[in-house]
Every structure is written in C-alpha cells, then in structure tokens.
C-alpha cells in the first residue's frame, strides 16, 4: 500500500484537484504551502518598504492626492539630518532607551537572582512580579498619569513620605527636567518583569553541579558568580536587551498616553515625532525619509548586536 503524504492528501480531495496534487513533487507541494505566506509578506512588508523608500525621494503629500509628485533626490534626507529638532528627539529616544535598558537589566537580573533561590512561595512572587507586563500599555499610561498627579497622585505622596520633598512642589509629567524620567520609570515598572523572566530562564539553565564543582575547586561565591553565573546568563540577558531595545526604539503608545510627548517636545520620541510629521503635518515624502533613516539605524544596530550575541554564545 502506498501511503505517501501526497497519496493521503489526494484521497480526501475532490477529483480534479486530486489529480493535480498527485502530479506535484515534494518541492512543488512545499512551495504550495509557503506561497500564501510569501505573498502576504510581500504585500504587507516588502512592498510598503520599497514604496516608502521611493516616496522618501519625493515631495509627496498624502493629503493632496491630485498634485504632481516631484522627484527631489536626497533633499528630504539632508533636511532631516540637519534639523536640530530631530536631533532633540533622537536624544530623547537615546536617553529613554539607555536608561530603561540599564534599569531593566539591573533590576530584572537582581530580581531573577533573588527569585531563583529556593524559598517558599517563589512561584507566587513570580506571578505577582510579572503582572505589570500583562497590562495594556494604554492602560498603564493612563493610570500612571493618575499616580503622577501632583496633588492626588500616590507617587508624589510616596516621594514626600520618604524624602520630605513637598508633594505638590513638583510634577513628574509637567516638569521639563522630570518628564524624561517619568517615562523611564513607567517603562521600567512595566517591562522589568520581562527581563526578569528571561534571566530566570538563564539562571535555571545552569546546573547545580557546576556550582558544586566550583566550590570543590575553591572558588568563592563571588568568583562563582563572575565565572559561572554571569557568563552563562549573558546570552539570555543580551537577548532580553535586544527585545527591549527594539521595542523601546519604537516606543509610542505608552508615552503618548502618559505625556503626549510633552511638556513641549521633551518626551517626544522619534516614533511620536514621525507620526506627527506623517499624519499631522502630512509631509509624507519627508516622513518616509525619516522612517528609512530610523529603519537603517535600528537594523544596523541590531545586526551589530546580534553578531556580538552570537560571539558570546560561541564562547
């Protein structure tokens, strides 16, 4: 009895189709299955990308469809790269990115390390710690807005309780010097659990017997930490940083909900700025060039990073 996958598929298929299925090679059937995905990918990823690159060399404005579209070469790129406002949003993004990564790695790893010790109820603690991650960013942005309220917010009250600073004397969202930190705090609150979970997976992957061998080899706890724990968790940690880095480079919803980019444009991250250029000012060509620059930046940084990650894994 022949029972190749093709035969089986043909048996349960109506006549005319069955014949054409029987005629397909393995390779042919593979393409048949992959084709819809490839088509979708081309339609919603690759085509828009190419179209965006094309638009970035034009003065196209999406709110004036009828007008003639002029090819203007690299003008958009020149204007973007020499615009001080854009450099300001880049700086805001860099500030946000670096500090959120720093805190999330530091706190996330520490929490993972603490949770990983065998104590009663650590499952329950893991669940509690992981909760913020499960909320919608819009919800988180909204309720932190309440928490940050100078008169009624819990945050200012807690700060006053611990430091004695008058709670109504500062506003996390309203003050130019505090707003960049306000978004860092919220993102850290929300996403540290994610870093913790990945670190925890890393820590759990280290077998006990390595620590046993090291203690027999007379390595102190400190040395065990640096020569076993850190090197073996590092690939996991770097992966977490990659995920968070890419996510936060694109950060939009949480910050829009929380500060709307303000005060002024202090917390206007690149993606917020970009959305403004594209869909409020309708400078489509210009925004396309902007998007291409961001894409190249993320792509470049990510590939360098992934190379480094692979090197660490190989070590």
């Amino acid at each position: 009895m022949s029972s190749s996958p093709m035969e089986c598929a043909a048996k349960v298929t109506p006549r005319p189709l069955a014949n054409s299925i029987r005629g397909l090679s393995d390779r042919g059937i593979a393409w048949l299955f992959v084709a819809p995905t490839i088509f979708l990918l081309l339609a919603i990823n690759i085509f828009p990308l190419i179209w965006t690159i094309y638009l970035s060399f034009t003065n196209f404005r999406a709110n004036r469809i009828g007008r003639e579209v002029k090819f203007i070469g690299l003008r958009n790129y020149e204007r973007i790269l020499s615009d001080p406002d854009i450099w300001q949003t880049m700086q805001a993004t860099a500030h946000f990115l670096l500090w959120t990564l720093f805190f999330q790695v530091l706190i996330g790893f520490t929490l993972a390390w603490l949770i990983n010790r065998k104590f009663k109820g650590n499952d329950m603690w893991t669940t509690i710690i992981v909760l913020p991650m499960m909320l919608s960013p819009a919800v988180v942005g909204n309720f932190w807005k309440f928490l940050y309220h100078p008169q009624t917010g819990l945050f200012n009250y807690v700060v006053q309780f611990f430091t004695g600073v008058d709670s109504s004397s500062f506003s996390m969202i309203g003050d130019v010097s505090l707003a960049p930190w306000a978004i860092v705090i919220v993102d850290t609150w929300m996403w540290t659990p994610f870093v913790m979970l990945i670190c925890l997976a890393g820590l759990r992957s280290i077998p006990d017997y390595l620590y046993e061998a090291a203690s027999v080899d007379r390595a102190s706890k400190w040395r065990q930490f640096w020569t076993i724990t850190i090197p073996m968790v590092l690939p996991f940690l770097m992966l977490a940083v990659l995920f968070r880095g890419i996510e936060n480079f694109k950060m939009f919803d949480l910050v829009v909900q929380l500060t709307g980019g303000g005060p002024g444009s202090i917390t206007e991250l690149t993606s917020i700025n970009l959305k403004r250029e594209a869909f409020e000012k309708w400078r489509t060509g210009y925004a396309s060039a902007y998007a291409v620059i961001l894409f190249v930046t993320v792509f470049g940084l990510a590939s360098i990073y992934v190379k480094a990650l692979n090197k660490v894994k190989e070590r």
Binding site: Y209, L210, E212, A213, S215, V216, D217, R218, A219, S220
Partner: peptide
C-alpha cells in the same frame, strides 16, 4: 565547606565548565 576541606572530586557526570576551554577548566582550581 568543600573549599576548606581541601578535596578534589572527579564527578560521575564530569561537571566541566561548559563555557570555558579545556585549558581554563584545568586552570580553574
């Protein structure tokens, strides 16, 4: 503790440090 007892162990399951080279494994103690 094991360090203070000053013993060496060849473990049944080897227990080498997987991320280190053979040289570093030997140098570790």
């Amino acid at each position: 503790n094991p360090a203070q007892r000053d013993v060496t162990v060849v473990f049944q399951q080897y227990s080498l440090y997987p991320h280190l080279s053979v040289r570093e494994n030997l140098a570790f103690p």
